[in-house]
Amino acid sequence: MKTSGMLPSSLITAHGPIRLPAYVPVTTFGDKYPLDDLVRPYLPRLAHAAMVSFHYAKQMRERPSLPLLVDSGGFASLFQNAVVRKIGGLGVLETTTDGKKETLHPRDVLDFQEQHADVAFTLDFPVPPAMSNREGRRRLSLTVANARWAIENRRRKDMLLFACVQGWDVDSYATCAKAYSKLTFDGIAIGGLVPRVRDFPQVLRIIEAVRAAVPDKPLHVFGLGKPGIVEVLFKNGVQSVDSSSYVKLAADGRFWGQTSLHLPDASPTERLHLALCNLAVAAQRTLPLSASHLVFGSQWWDRMVPAASAGG
């Protein structure tokens, strides 16, 4: 798979460079995932950037000291209480919780990102495999409309803006990507691949098609972060990925090297250690010697038991 020689070796952001290829850990703010609070200060030691979703980023009280990627939260359009509406030619996400209606407009997303993000992703709407083609096309056109709007309305020069690509098959993804080929985005991001990952050759074909449509911009893939898969993606024209699996597994007491086992009743700091080991494995970074007791200490191995559901 050839990529254009014009691709940069790092993304230059206001908070420092992000060396490519980059493995970007996902983090959250607020009370929902306390393990993230423990892990977050250590992310700069193992990664060049962190990804956070708009919904959690709003609860951010202190900005972490590494470059921040903020996605739009359009993922929520997959939830039952969500509706995608077309208002003023743009795609707006309407969610209803406890009778209260909340709308998410591309303007809301961009305003927030310009205040806090180093890399921003446009408001997109994934198309799940079971969705009808008609609805899929509608969402796709709104995704493209939102992206076009964002690039025209971006004010901050030093914030990188990535256009999001969605679809349901190779052709639809390619079409979506082609819509961005002449625009001045800083990069392209492919979403919606997580539910499709079981058909990995299909995933690679989609990536190839998108790459062909936009050969000269950095390419990010949302949500695929499993070790093993990541290397293949990087070899196939992808410059960056993000994933929360490293911490989700740790919250379960699992270690990425051995997902059939888990540590029952892991304490908060044990989960922290697991998360850091998982991230190091995924990002192919080494842990310092002082942390060797985490990996080589017999503390865990003796106590790991077969997990209820194997695999991670």
Binding site: Y42, T269, L272, H273, L276, L287, P288, S290, A291, H293
Partner: peptide, 10 residues
């Protein structure tokens, strides 16, 4: 301290 900060060198 070591549990809270696994990167600590003593």
């Amino acid at each position: 301290a070591r549990r809270l900060n696994p990167f600590l060198q003593l």
